[in-house]
């Protein structure tokens, strides 16, 4: 495949979508991996004492999952040039074995001449956006490597 992938993209295209599940176990694992041991992410007593409905996911875990959608699509993780989001609503994680479903979709907002593509990520729990202004700028390789 040698043609530039950007030529196949148009504004409004949904290039990827996926539903991710977050459980309490994921929060513990992310706390350890990231070093973010804020108790609102693992201790119900502390979470409710500061006015939260229950234990909530790390904003950066949600952003990391949404970023996975991008890097799964791109292949090369370094093709993400800019990535940002606003943590608009807490993702409440129930104390059960199922967790909470986070639906992520990425759509094209701009295809640039320099090979960069701007994307908007829609990140929802139920019908509510949990991340807003979730945007990324990605570099699409002229010749995407075949899937490993």
């Amino acid at each position: 495949m040698t043609e530039r992938v950007t030529e196949q993209l148009a504004v409004g295209d949904v290039v990827a979508d996926h539903t991710y599940w977050i459980t309490r176990e994921n929060l513990i694992r992310y706390a350890g991996a990231s070093g973010d041991f804020n108790p609102i992410h693992w201790n119900e007593r502390v979470a409710t004492s500061v006015g939260l409905p229950n234990v909530i996911a790390h904003g950066m875990l949600t952003m990391g999952l949404a970023g996975r959608l991008l890097t799964d699509w791109l292949g090369d993780p370094a093709a993400v040039v800019e990535y940002g989001a606003r943590f608009a609503r807490p993702v409440v994680v129930p104390d059960d074995d199922i967790g909470v479903a986070v639906r992520v979709a990425a759509s094209v907002t701009q295809v640039r001449d320099d090979g960069l593509v701007a994307l908007e990520l829609t990140v929802k729990v139920g019908d509510q956006k949990v991340l807003t202004q979730a945007r990324a700028l990605c570099r699409l390789p002229a010749d995407r490597p075949s899937q490993p």
Partner: peptide, 17 residues
């Protein structure tokens, strides 16, 4: 203290891997 803090927004601009 940590428990008083909420992450409102985050943006990264990457120069390279």
């Amino acid at each position: 203290e940590f428990a008083r803090v909420v992450h409102v927004d985050q943006r990264f601009t990457y120069s390279r891997s």
